[in-house]
Amino acid sequence: MNKTGIAYAVSICVLIAAVIAGVTIGTVSIPVSTLWNRQADPALFNILWNIRMPRVVLAGLVGASLAIAGAAFQGLLKNPLADPYTLGVSSGASVGAVIILFFGISIPFLGIFTLPVFSMAGAFITMLAVIGFAKLVDRSMKMETIILTGIIFSSFLGSIISLMIALTGEELRQIIGWILGSVSMRGWDYVNMALPFIIIGTLLLWLNRRELNALIFGEERAKHLGVNVKNRKMMILAGGSILTGAAVAVSGTIGFIGLVVPHMIRLVSGADHRQLLPLSFLNGASLLVLCDLLSRTIIAPTELPIGVITAFLGAPVFAFIFFKQRRTGGA
């Protein structure tokens, strides 16, 4: 088995182990056999399939979405520090979600999909705004310019959310939960709400995996290779924004998954997006399932917001990549 095959085998095994740990470990320990044996203990079977399993599945889908979106943004922008969180895309998605919660908007023909649609719209608009502003400031789109632009937009959008929190009443708890990031108390309805958009976003990025490889060498080279750069860039941005918006709509703002996972995968399998995207998807799912497990067990019975755990993991990795990039650039 070659290096890539080993990476897939290990990734799948880790994901299976993470899911089993996520559904069996907690305040109440549940035997693995409960997964298929309803007669053993109906109460435990109910806890596993109606409380823990949807939470674990949702955490896996959110982690996979953020990781694959981060891998695509990094490839498109040729910047290892790009991810939905550092680019401000998560903040844009959060504003879209919080507007729905704050005003209690429900569009009849969208139904339960009102929240993710507004969240995705916020993510996509923010992504376009960040790239557009960065180009105005610096035509060469240097790493520092993009990241600083993302920080500027994140700060501005954060102030909008803070304003809505200051003006809110009953919705305060729900909005704060969105900001901190959590998959707690989410049922199968949330999985059903996010899944269609996660499938669409993932397919969009997967269909552009070869184009992402071509864009690594620059837009001119990609054009010579027959890539319709403008259309493909919009498809990649749309795919990443759909994934980010869907993830934020059901879990709130969870940072650094899209930064950490693709970086680690590149160290193992290289920068080929034909391998990077699926491996990021699998390992992003595993990482967030394990982070969620840690968030609800580390100080049990109290739960930490999952965003706190990912920030503890992601901030040092962000600092390391930034330091490495600066040293390489200065060499």
Results as ranks from 00 to 15, higher is better:
A7I: 08
Y8R: 04
V10R: 06
C13H: 08
L15I: 04
I16G: 01
A17L: 14
V19Y: 01
S33Y: 03
W36E: 02
V56T: 05
V57S: 03
A67T: 09
A69Y: 07
A71I: 06
F73R: 03
Q74L: 00
L77C: 05
D83V: 10
D83G: 06
L87E: 03
V89M: 10
S90D: 08
S91G: 08
A93H: 04
S94Q: 13
G96A: 13
S106I: 09
G111S: 04
I112Q: 12
P116A: 11
A121H: 07
I125T: 12
L128R: 11
A129K: 10
I160N: 00
I161S: 05
E171K: 14
L180V: 13
R186H: 06
R186T: 07
G187S: 03
L195H: 07
L195M: 12
P196G: 02
L204S: 03
R209P: 08
A214T: 09
G218T: 10
E220C: 08
H224S: 15
G226M: 10
N228M: 13
V229M: 01
M234S: 13
M235D: 11
M235P: 05
G239M: 02
G240D: 01
L243Y: 06
T244R: 09
A246Q: 09
S251V: 05
S251W: 06
G255F: 04
P262F: 09
I265G: 03
L267C: 10
R274Q: 09
L277A: 01
P278W: 05
L279Y: 07
N283L: 15
V289H: 02
L293Q: 08
L294N: 11
R296K: 13
R296V: 00
I298D: 10
P301I: 10
T302I: 15
E303L: 08
G307L: 08
V308Y: 08
F318E: 05
F320H: 14
R327N: 13
G329S: 06
